[in-house]
Write a protein that binds this DNA or RNA. Structure first.
Length: 380
DNA sequence: AAGGACTCCAACCGCAAACAA
DNA sequence: ATTGTTTGCGGTTGGAGTCCT
């Protein structure tokens, strides 16, 4: 292997820079400008290699560097540019004044990437993860045919891999399905068809008030059918699942659609936005404290055709991901938050702003639930 | 209170392109 | 055209700080 250009054996220092070293570097560059990095440290009286000096200057000491947290707008820009450019951090940084490629790369890896994963979006392709599509289809299938051992096994495997990333409601539904077994001819079981455990022993989901949960456990001593849910129950649950499936299938990749009339289509097709009521976008934007929804939608209408296609595509993607992302767990999408204030910050590791960002999609789920009047009874 | 686990980010490393001689 | 040097880039690491049990 070639000798490292920054060898400590040469008496060159490595590791964190001291304020004195910083000052030496700043003073030297102020007087002589940068360039000739190889000779710079010697001339500046620094026991560092040129590469280290260059990095320190470009990533930290440069006067035009913007320090501090990334704004919502910057974050949105990074996501959009990454969708098009991939890991071309320097190209992305060139479009974000004051930010370095290193800073953007770190921010992507520590914040945005994780957030996208939580939302069920592949951070590389910016499309919904395939395993989620599989889960959606499997859940639908299991709802109709819960006795299928193949479905059960498949679902079990999938849950094993995805459980930690799933929203509690979806997890409850999936595990409920897994715990279902076809009833025998017992006449004392309840209409829900659960025999692996006595239904009275099933713990209520931790976000459902006990009283509500108990009211769900209605007995029907006469029903001995092997159909796990009544037609109306099945239809109801399916209605809950459909937006999920829809949004999954609508979450398509963006760049290939440049120049299309997607925005026009998406405006006409309100179902693309949300299964909720009209005015969803404006309402959500005003209630979840994330102004981008409104500003983005208006800016799309005012932008040039190419930008419009680009922006509308991203906008559409973000909106069509609403339902399925809401089904994935995020700290603020936890059961506690569902029943409490938006300002319940579950993850103390994150700042309130972090959680607000995380809540962007999970808050939509809350709106979703509110609109459906969904509670534990209905969902189960 | 302690220590293990986790997060974050500055700094490093190696490779490749650009440039100079 | 070739060779050596410089610069730019993206991936990875190390350690300080914080959280969790």
């Amino acid at each position: 292997m070639a000798k490292s250009p920054c060898s400590e054996k040469d008496g060159l220092k490595k590791g964190p820079w001291t304020p004195e070293e910083d000052q030496k570097l700043i003073d030297y560059i102020k007087r002589h400008g940068h360039g000739r990095w190889r000779t710079l440290p010697k001339n500046a009286g620094l026991k560092r290699c040129g590469k280290s000096c260059r990095l320190r200057w470009t990533n930290y000491l440069r006067p035009d560097i913007k320090r501090g947290r990334f704004s919502f707008e910057e974050e949105e820009t990074i996501i959009q540019l990454h969708r098009v450019l991939g890991n071309k951090w320097s190209a992305i940084a060139a479009r974000l004044p004051g930010r370095t490629d290193n800073e953007i790369k770190n921010y992507w890896n520590t914040h945005i990437r994780k957030r996208l994963l939580k939302m069920g979006i592949d951070p590389v392709t910016h499309t919904p993860r395939l395993d989620l599509l599989e889960l959606s289809s499997l859940l639908s299938s299991t709802l109709y045919n819960p006795q299928s051992s193949q479905n059960q096994l498949h679902l079990q495997n999938l849950l094993g891999n995805m459980g930690p990333l799933m929203n509690q409601n979806l997890l409850n539904l999936a595990t409920t399905l897994l715990s279902y077994q076809p009833k025998s001819t017992s006449t004392n079981s309840t209409s829900t068809g659960f025999v692996s455990q006595n239904v009275q022993e099933i713990s209520p989901p931790n976000h459902v008030p006990e009283s509500q949960f108990q009211s769900f456990q209605t007995s029907s001593t006469s029903n001995t059918s092997t159909v796990p849910y009544s037609m109306s129950e099945t239809q109801f649950i399916q209605a809950k699942m459909d937006p999920f499936s829809q949004s999954l299938t609508h979450g398509t990749s963006c760049p290939n659609n440049f120049g299309s009339n997607m925005w026009q289509n998406s405006v006409e097709d309100e179902a693309l936005f949300t299964p909720c009521s009209e005015g969803f976008v404006a309402n959500m934007a005003s209630t979840n404290g994330y102004p981008d929804c409104v500003t983005q939608s208006s800016s799309i209408l005012n932008s040039t055709s190419e930008n419009q296609a680009f922006a509308s595509c991203n906008f559409q993607n973000s909106m069509t991901n609403v339902s399925f992302t809401s089904l994935l767990s995020t700290p603020s999408c936890s059961p506690n938050t569902l029943n409490s204030s938006l300002k319940t910050y579950v993850n103390s590791n994150s700042s309130p702003e972090d959680n607000q960002r995380d809540s962007f999609c999970s808050n939509m789920f809350m709106y979703d639930i509110a609109n459906y009047g969904l509670n534990g009874n209905e969902f189960l």
